[in-house]
Write a protein that binds this DNA or RNA. Structure first.
Lengths: 161, 161
DNA sequence: CTTGAAAAATGCCGGAA
DNA sequence: TTCCGGCATTTTTCAAG
């Protein structure tokens, strides 16, 4: 929560390239390598950095179909539904949300046939609404200081701030 | 696409911990460090690995509100809407999808007040439906061989396969 | 947080299966 | 091709200030 300017710069760098050496990070933020290592360790311990991951493009490994499946789960079935999606290897994200469609799944799969099977499985727990993803204009935007303290005047209405 | 067993094991390891040294990966898959480096380089070149990133928990940096905003963008406004969401630091994901709600935004922000402002901005482009995220049962599940070739008999209907 | 030294990892090369 | 071994360089790690 109380991150200083250097913490934010480190987060910027590591969200852009999670394999940057801590020496290199240190060079860019004008700190020694051990200092960076220690800051990163503390950011992880405080739960700010939750991990470092390689990101894989599903389309590049034979998963061209991406869809958002909204499921109106009957409340009694919620625990079983939770178990179900946890076991679904094609479910990349599953969010429990407010509103009529209690659950939102992001699913990737090899074909429409497979998507059909997945949606049919989900139907066991409630009504579904499925949308195919054309494209993603934004995916996993890094969290920056701007996200936390957005500046005013960024919108088209007030360009001449 | 044509990934062998070792490629999959490397992807498993690096999706779990993107900062593992390639020597360590090599130890675990019984390959020399240069061989791992070369495989990772090719996986990146083929677009399988799209990058390595640190993941940041928005809640840990003062962004406790997460919401999915569906926007029914009027088709003529789509290009401007695209520009708008690209400029929104709170939009973590933005997907163009089929169906009535042409766009799905995943938004994080500091307060309900801020969410209200963002939704009001989105309203300029079309009607919106907003759902608050209670929790995420799955977030960024790794892509595995199972995702590409799901085994049959995983579902509750056919446990005794 | 820094420095400095030991241990480990990386990058690059020629050569083997 | 794909992988291995070896060497120079860089990075990591750990101690001490």
């Amino acid at each position: 929560m109380d991150l200083d300017e250097i913490d934010w710069r480190i987060l910027d760098l590591l969200q852009a390239d999670g394999r940057l050496s801590f020496s290199e990070v240190g060079r860019r933020v004008a700190l020694s390598a051990p200092a960076v290592t220690e800051r990163v360790r503390r950011l992880e311990q405080r739960g700010v950095i939750t991990g470092f991951r390689a990101t894989v493009d599903p389309r590049a490994v034979g998963l061209p179909v991406e869809a958002i499946v909204r499921v109106r789960v009957r409340s009694l079935d919620t625990p079983r539904f939770r178990q179900h999606v946890l076991a679904l290897p094609q479910a990349m994200d599953a969010d429990h949300v407010t509103g009529e469609d209690c659950w939102l799944l992001r699913v990737v799969c090899a074909s429409m046939l497979e998507l059909e099977a997945i949606v049919e499985q989900a139907q066991r727990f409630g009504d579904t609404t499925t949308s195919l993803v054309f494209s993603s204009a934004v995916r996993g935007r890094p969290v920056t200081r701007e996200t936390v303290e957005p500046v005013q005047g960024t919108n088209s209405r007030s360009t001449a701030s």
